[in-house]
Nucleic acid binder design. Structure first.
Lengths: 196, 196
DNA sequence: CGGAGATGTCAACGCTTGTTGGCCTACGCA
DNA sequence: TGCGTAGGCCAACAAGCGTTGACATCTCCG
């Protein structure tokens, strides 16, 4: 992630404004994901981006704005209305797993959501604006949509928590196909089974 | 929680050592649960306990030791081997729900587990030493015990996360019986159903 | 009555944090 | 060639943190 020797960059080349912005955002995402909001310091992010901390302020104003810019979550949920109805559970699990595996953005949001009130509000809005509407497409009774959606969120976030944040060994070692095979039917039931 | 006027306690009565210890531990549990490890400051805990911050150090040495003493999690898992085998899922969900509802200790552990490496290790050990052995009593194949146990942990912690930490409205509004009715069969399947 | 020990306060330390303002220096256009 | 400006560094700030040690006061035993 660092690309220059510690005290180097003696004279010549300088970065473009956009490249620096991008480097800061990358470093910020990684730090927020690894350390949570409080422990991810501006100084550490700046160091990772090979720049002075004051530049972070110039580019983004303050820490909260940096977080808001760096962690803009888009779940990119698939159009599950187009799928066979009995496969939506497995499809959702597989989609989330893929999302989580290859970018730290969601881990960052989860860690910060637990640490910080602003982060928690952000997670509630992602739930409300992204997961809930999609659930509406599959659920029989509109009145049950929030409940069923929340149950799905609990199962999916619980997986992320144990696998990517707490790193319980058996949860980490599960192969992706195993996760889908186990959690798929659970989400299927939460979404489509008659309420118990 | 505070029982004296702000600047009061002018002369006479003093507290016993044990009462002060207990007051500090209560305040610490509440603060860790509400704020996580970093934001729960010694100064704030001391203020809640109506005492000088330096006394917290005298009683507990340092912040990490205070946390270790204040948050000593005992899941008190019931002897599920004595239950009818098809009821263990519901029983576990009901037990966890009760545990979580009436003390902040578990919320504290969860919040700190996400924030702090030491807290995460603590959660792994609770999983390993308390949940996993109980799972062993119900699981058919010993080799599948860690996997099945981790699946249960994911579902239960996901519930706690959405309901007590992130406070997603639909998760908060679920009645306890509803939670048991929805999650019971899930845990039942994770524990006893043939592996998919 | 007197002093030892328990209980508690106060003021300060060294450190880290987010944030600010002044200064430098290389680049690109005229 | 000269110069404005974008890009970057450095030093410092006020605040808050965990932690420490010196000092006060109450209580109880001999």
């Amino acid at each position: 992630m660092l690309d220059s020797a510690p005290g180097a960059t003696p004279g010549p080349s300088r970065r473009s404004s956009d490249a620096t912005r991008a480097a800061i955002l990358d470093a910020a995402r990684a730090r927020f994901a690894a350390d949570g909001y409080d422990r991810a310091t501006i100084r550490a992010i700046a160091r990772d981006a090979s720049i002075d901390p004051s530049m972070v302020m110039r580019y983004f104003g303050n820490k909260e704005a940096l977080f808001a810019t760096a962690v803009a979550v888009d779940l990119r949920l698939p159009d599950i209305a187009a799928l066979p109805r009995e496969e939506v559970g497995r499809a959702l699990v597989a989609h989330f797993l893929g999302l989580w595996e290859d970018n730290g953005e969601l881990t960052a949001m989860l860690r910060v959501g637990v640490t910080n009130p602003v982060g928690a509000e952000r997670m509630r809005s992602v739930f409300r604006d992204q997961l809930l509407p999609v659930t509406r497409l599959v659920c029989p009774d509109p009145e049950q949509v929030p409940t069923r959606s929340a149950l799905c969120a609990a199962q999916l976030l619980g997986l992320a928590l144990t696998r990517y944040v707490l790193r319980l060994p058996p949860a980490v070692e599960l192969a992706p196909e195993e996760v889908v095979a186990w959690l798929g039917p659970t989400l299927q039931r939460y979404l489509t089974a008659p309420s118990p």
